[in-house]
Design a protein around this nucleic acid. Structure first.
Lengths: 218, 218
DNA sequence: CCTACCGATCGGTAGG
DNA sequence: CCTACCGATCGGTAGG
């Protein structure tokens, strides 16, 4: 894959792909960071550009100097987010090797860790409806790619008899929606660490795909 | 419970509680119906009262004659929705009796049937952020009640050893989010009937809670 | 990056 | 006086 890519100016994506469990500071431009927070609180259409400018401490025209319009803020945030989780999930799968159960565990862990450590970005997934068609198509294509990656693994496991679900596609969709759901309720200051939430969801997800491995699932 | 209740003027809620698998026409006031469609397409803040009025074919003041304001439309829709699924789920659980696995199956089936048959209402769940504090608190309380109903059943099953998940609360949240997810992708004209989607999610949900019943789960 | 603004549209309400 | 609205416009705000 490319070593210098993404809309993010910092080291984020590439380093993340190599060390998929490691999460540093967000490293977003202040305008993007405050746009993210505003969109999370009030939604895209419920957020005014004056609100974002006010949070950042700049004027509205200053905001438009850095970004084309409000839509570009959302599109940049969502593209940054989906590319990061995709890179991390791919790295986790590669590290896990060929065993379907090991790959599944690693992929689910990487996705849930992302949802917890990058909750503010991950929660924006609810705003895809507000993306213009082109931006939306690009985002959905990347999200579908993530789904197909996981589906390939579940189907491989089903072929080997290690996953017993009769509905791999439905099971994968269910697992991904339960991972995405973490972004809706997880709070860093809550009782569970991101790592513990990931561990639990790996086990829940294994149950959802009907895992029958050498050591069972309980 | 009350026999004459809810914000819905028609037979909806009460009859639905008795026949939780039966879905008739929505029976919503035309203004509510078109507000629902607009909110589903563009979100609450992305929908203007003029858009709603235009869809219905009435003037804006006519709309304000029937409903206090835009907020009341969303609040009424969401309250109607959560009360209906709650009534149906309760009826399904009562019909299923005391066995935790039977109750779990019935409750998940009833919830997924609701998500598929009442997709337009169920999808509005993404708009709770746009509810004013009081309306939001009432909605969340009812949704929490649904979660506690399901958790009681899963904990009862865990106590009997029929559900083996070590995390009943996380498992219930995961199951509910995968049910809610049905409202995001289900299309009546698609390949699967609501009943088939419900059947599959019952099995997926049983896997998620680690069901180890007399007949297994595969 | 700011001051000074625009065409239009927002949610909601006036008198009749 | 009531209902079910109407054409027009309110004070403010949207993205630009």
């Amino acid at each position: 894959m490319s070593t210098q890519s993404s809309t993010q100016p910092d080291e984020g994506t590439t380093a993340a792909a190599r060390h998929w469990r490691v999460y540093g500071p967000l490293g977003l431009h202040p305008i993007l960071l405050h746009a993210m927070e505003a969109f999370d609180e009030h939604g895209y259409h419920g957020t005014s550009v004056r609100d974002i400018a006010g949070r950042v401490g700049v004027t509205v025209p200053a905001l438009y100097y850095h970004y084309e319009n409000k839509q570009a803020l959302l599109a940049t945030l969502l593209e940054t987010s989906i590319k990061d989780v995709l890179d991390r999930c791919r790295a986790a799968a590669e590290e896990a090797g060929d065993d379907p159960a090991a790959r599944f565990r690693a992929m689910v862990e990487s996705i849930v860790l992302y949802m917890a450590h990058r909750q503010g970005l991950a929660f924006l997934d609810t705003e895809i409806r507000s993306l213009e068609p082109g931006n939306r198509a690009r985002y959905v294509a990347l999200r579908d790619y993530l789904e197909h990656m996981l589906l390939d693994t579940v189907e491989a496991g089903a072929a080997q008899g290690v996953f017993t679900t009769p509905f791999p596609a439905d099971a994968v969709r269910a697992v991904l929606v339960m991972c995405q759901g973490v972004a809706n309720w997880y709070r860093p200051e809550g009782p569970l660490t991101a790592e513990e939430v990931a561990r639990r969801h790996v086990l829940l997800g294994l149950g959802t795909v009907g895992y029958r491995g050498p050591a069972g699932n309980g």
